[in-house]
Amino acid sequence: MTVLDRTALSGARLVLPGGVVDGDRLTVEGTRIAGLGGETRPGDLDLTGHTVVPGFVDLHVHGGGGASYTSGIAEEALLAARTHLEHGTTTTVASTVTGEIDDLTRQAAVLSELVEDATLAGIHFEGPFISHNRCGAHRPDLLRDPDPALVRKLVDAARGHAKMVTLAPELPGGLDSVRMLADLGIIAAVGHTDSDYTTTLEAIDAGATVATHLFNAMPGIAHRAPGPIVALLEDERVTVELINDGVHLHPSVLDLAYGTAGPNRVALITDAMGAAGMGDGLYPLGPLQVRVENGVAMLPDGSSIAGSTLTLDRVFQRSLLVHGLTLAQTVESLCATPARLLGLTDSIGSLETGKLADLVVVDSDSYDLVAVMRHGRWAVGGDSFPTVTSA
Rank of each mutant, 00 (worst) to 15 (best):
P172D: 10
G174E: 00
L175Q: 03
D176G: 13
S177V: 10
S177Q: 15
V178N: 03
V178L: 06
V178Y: 01
M180E: 02
L181V: 04
A182H: 15
D183C: 07
L184G: 07
I186H: 09
I187P: 11
A188F: 00
H192R: 14
D196G: 06
T199V: 05
E202D: 14
E202Y: 00
I204F: 03
G207C: 02
G207T: 02
G207L: 04
G207D: 02
A208R: 04
T209K: 04
T209A: 10
T212H: 08
F215P: 06
N216I: 04
A217D: 02
P219A: 04
G220K: 11
A222N: 12
H223V: 01
H223W: 07
R224L: 09
A225E: 15
P226V: 03
P228C: 03
P228Y: 01
V230S: 10
A231R: 05
D235K: 04
E236Y: 07
R237W: 00
V238F: 04
T239V: 14
E241S: 04
E241Q: 15
E241A: 07
N244A: 10
H248F: 05
H248R: 15
L249A: 09
P251R: 15
P251K: 14
S252P: 07
S252W: 09
S252T: 15
V253H: 12
L254D: 12
D255V: 14
Y258T: 02
G259I: 11
T260D: 09
P263A: 05
N264C: 05
N264A: 13
R265Q: 01
R265Y: 00
V266S: 06
I269P: 13
T270Y: 12
M273A: 09
M273N: 11
A275P: 11
G277V: 13
M278P: 10
G279W: 12
G279T: 12
G281T: 08
P284N: 13
L285E: 09
L285Y: 05
G286W: 10
Q289Y: 09
R291W: 08
V292C: 03
N294I: 06
N294C: 07
